Simulated assay, not measured.
Amino acid sequence: METAIPLFIADVHLGKLASMLRMLGFDTVYSNTFSNAALVNIALEQQCVLLTRNVTIGRHQHALQTFIIIHDAPAEQLKTVLQHFHLLAHIQPFSRCMVCNGALEPVAKETVINELPEKTAQYYHQFWQCTHCRRFYWKGPHYNRMVHFIQKITGDSIR
């Protein structure tokens, strides 16, 4: 029996971890404006695992699933979460918006060319758009660095 992939919510101290989890395709709610009470309420309502550095947050909420992050380095935090929740086989890189957590969908260059920076439209041909915030993504110079980072974290090659 396969276990469900958890949904996550990250506290104010874990913005980089949230972004990296999104980069790997994991549904991760994050805002640096959430109070501890809001984090707990959202985690309970949406049945998310609360990723936190705060050992006392929600300790009286027995239905709350929390995972305490002890490492300071975001890459180590990510490795810990991936290992603890057995997520390596479930990675779907670049399927979520790293900014807002929305799903990314491929879009035809012709339909978005007028919304792209001129050099981007000139040199790149594959594009994705966030279904929520409408931000565009493409495999620019940053893409290879991100792929290398993912390979280093997972020990695996990706597409």
Rank of each mutant, 00 (worst) to 15 (best):
F85N: 10
N41V: 03
F34C: 00
W128Q: 15
L51D: 01
F127R: 14
M1H: 11
L50T: 03
V29A: 11
L78A: 04
E115G: 09
C130Q: 04
T80N: 05
L17C: 03
C48D: 02
F26H: 05
G58I: 07
T111M: 12
V147S: 01
H148A: 12
S19L: 11
I5A: 01
A43V: 03
R134K: 11
G15K: 07
S157G: 04
V55M: 13
A37V: 08
N32C: 02
V147E: 02
A75W: 05
L104M: 08
V147K: 07
R135C: 04
A4G: 04
N41G: 09
D72N: 11
A103Q: 13
E110Y: 05
P6A: 03
E115V: 04
T52V: 05
L51Q: 01
K152R: 06
L21K: 12
M1V: 08
L88F: 04
A108R: 14
V12C: 10
A108F: 13
M98G: 13
Q83G: 01
P106E: 14
A75M: 06
I150M: 07
A37L: 12
P93I: 14
A37S: 13
H13A: 13
A89Y: 03
Y30G: 01
T28W: 11
R134N: 08
E45K: 14
G102K: 09
C48H: 11
F8V: 04
D11Y: 05
Y30W: 08
N32L: 00
F8P: 02
R145F: 00
L82E: 02
L7Y: 11
V112I: 15
I57W: 13
D72Y: 04
T111S: 15
Q92M: 09
F67M: 09
V107Q: 14
K139S: 10
A18N: 06
C133P: 07
L78P: 14
M146H: 03
R159H: 12
L87A: 10
L17I: 02
H60C: 06
T131Y: 07
N41I: 00
G140Q: 08
P93A: 10
Q77C: 05
L104K: 08
R145G: 03
V99C: 05
G102W: 00
Q122D: 11
K139D: 10
Q77H: 08
G25C: 11
V55T: 08
Q126G: 04
I57P: 10
